[in-house]
Design a protein around this nucleic acid. Structure first.
Lengths: 225, 225, 225, 225
DNA sequence: AATGAATGAGCCTTCATTCAT
DNA sequence: GATGAATGAAGGCTCATTCAT
């Protein structure tokens, strides 16, 4: 009753599951879903070749689970409202949004292979993507749109909000999706994962300035003439 | 056309090569390098299953060739200096750069599956990427840096130019790398490939405003008048 | 029923055994020995996956047991001398023999999946067949031979008795072994299991007439008058 | 043009196909479809493990082909009208029908593993059975019914014709389906395949007498009284 | 030069069985 | 006594590649 009625088998099962989720995340991040072999995943988890089928049904079952868990963990560890008060200024909201997003996709921490797997999912969507979009990505997109609306005013056309949101996300994901090129272009530059704050700072400033492009050129600002 | 009874001549050989490059581009763009089967590529090219090995050594040989050709063709068709006079204003240079870049990666034209294949190459680099970076990507990156330098002044730190360049490219590639998510988030929106001008317009405006963030806020304030 | 708090006693053990024999009979009859999976059998018996190995050693152990029990039960429920007086006429004995045989192999009752399993055993004998032949089939065969002898006279050659016996059994088993074809040939006909009496009637009449072929055509010709 | 344009590759292909059909027939007859392994079939055919997939798509493709070919060859070699004149007496037609049927299912010749495979198909039908029934079995069944009609008169109920036909076929198939039991019951008896004529003789006589059971007990035949 | 039949390594999956608890 | 997580052998199938022609 105290939670240890079957301490060993249950624990062993959970440990194997855990190990498979971890090695699966690693292998999927390294070589992608199709190139990943169940043998390699099991080998790294010190598990039998049949373990994946036993615990997750099949390879795609493990993959879905890995993806879902990573998405969940990433959003828990790096919430996009971290440290924000309810009525924080939209510029501050944007800064936090950008930094947490960068952290999620670039953090080299245990479960933050998230970025690579997500990048692969973009390029070669699996059945898991639909769920991911509806459960994780769409909420983020809506939050970003809301921030944009506060920055640009409630009457800003939806299309404009959307374009600005995409410009922000595009800047962020570039560091995730194009790592191989960045490394080849600037081999001496420190890894982007180590410059998250710097990148967040830049993207925030760039974007806040960028959206000004859509400020209604109202009456004021005589200086501009 | 000449007197050869069979088209077994080198013309036929060249035609097969050509057909393989075309069908290879299609298949690689559709399903990626690893999921592509040589049989399917040969089938579409009306060629023998051994044709790829015969003409390109092996599957990766065909792939490299496809990639290199696409890169070359894309830059020929959509040069990043299209219609520019030598001393065009940097803002105009940026606009042209962005539009031609978008055209290269989004245009659904014959050989402009380029975007999808490049996106795959980012996520899962093959040996072909090194060559691509040095021959095609680095020149583009340097051109973009040069434009940024003209926009921000010759004394702007290289790191700043680089960050701004990445912000521009990130915005562009987002529409290429994240299509599957964009389609799921906004199923009713017209395909991005049909809105290239609109996107180019937005990204240019957003970026020109964005880089203002780095204008030395010194005296020039007045100089603008 | 007694004071044991858990049904973990030998009664529970016996119940699991029983359940495994039942579900095993079902599954073996449905899909055959090789296609049957121990997991499915255990699942239907609400038993552990290791239960078969625990109770019967291995899968073949359960199978043998199922076969032996079915054979025994089938012969108990449908004895080939049902309702016969010791000195019944041989034609009557044959009728009863045929009907009880049909019942054993066609009756859809609880344990009378017997027919399907036996049919499989004929086509793909397992080690269990030897025992089955010596314990169940040979006695039946001898009884049938005895009936034939009474029908055809004590001097009838053994080979003739044997042939006639096989003709009888062949007619019976046809309805068991060839169900799939019968159903496809005559889809509208009622299931043979529902026409046992009709079939018994036919086979008996046909066979009694058939064996007449071996009546010594000697003097008796006249004696028949 | 003379049929040898590509003598070698074509011939090699055909030889491999042929060898696979032969070894497939053997293995399927020996252990059944499900127990047969493609590896074993290919090994016996001196072919690669991928040969079955290459030539027949998959395992079931080979199986269907084997079944169809056997059925065709068996009916060609042992036609059920062998040596019959158009207006042969029905008793003679029945004799020939029975003997050719026995030959098809018992003949140990190269391709006459037919019987065993058919027996398995009865017990555990595969998708191939439907085609077999409509193309081969049904025509036989109809021919047998026609013979019965001639034996018993045109007014005989269809149900009677059907029952008598089944009695005939049941007697025949018994020697095919129940070999394992026959061998165990009468180990000293010569193999049934060597007694085809004897068996045909018996079954014909038994059945001709058997169907008399359904002769309308018309006026004539005073002697019977 | 060009073919296509054949190859064999390797993949995912299934399943009866075991063994620590 | 009974469990169920774990095992590992084996199966069908795919695919890039080769080689005799």
């Amino acid at each position: 009753m105290s939670g240890s009625s079957r301490p060993n088998s249950s624990a062993a099962q959970a440990a194997t599951r855990r190990a498979l989720l971890d090695s699966g995340a690693d292998v999927f991040a390294e070589v992608g879903f199709h190139n990943a072999t169940t043998r390699e995943i099991c080998r790294r988890a010190n598990a039998n070749v049949a373990a994946i089928n036993y615990h997750f049904g099949d390879k795609t079952g493990l993959y879905s689970e890995v993806l879902a868990e990573q998405s969940r963990v990433a959003r828990e560890r790096f919430p996009s409202t971290d440290g924000l008060t309810a009525n924080a200024a939209p510029a501050e909201q944007l800064r936090v949004f950008i930094r947490s997003f960068l952290q999620r996709v670039l953090s080299p921490d245990l479960h933050a292979r998230h970025g690579r797997i997500m990048a692969r999912e973009m390029v070669e969507p699996t059945a898991a993507l639909d769920r991911l979009v509806s459960e994780a990505i769409r909420p983020d997109a809506e939050r970003l749109t809301a921030i944009m609306r506060r920055l640009l005013g409630p009457k800003t056309p939806a299309a404009t909000l959307r374009l600005c949101g995409m410009s922000v996300v595009g800047q962020i994901l570039f560091y995730c999706h194009c790592q191989p090129v960045i490394q080849r272009l600037f081999p001496d530059q420190p890894a982007d994962a180590a410059r998250i704050d710097e990148l967040a700072q830049h993207i925030t400033g760039f974007s806040l300035a960028g959206v000004q492009n859509y400020r209604t050129p109202v009456a004021p600002r005589r200086a501009q003439r």
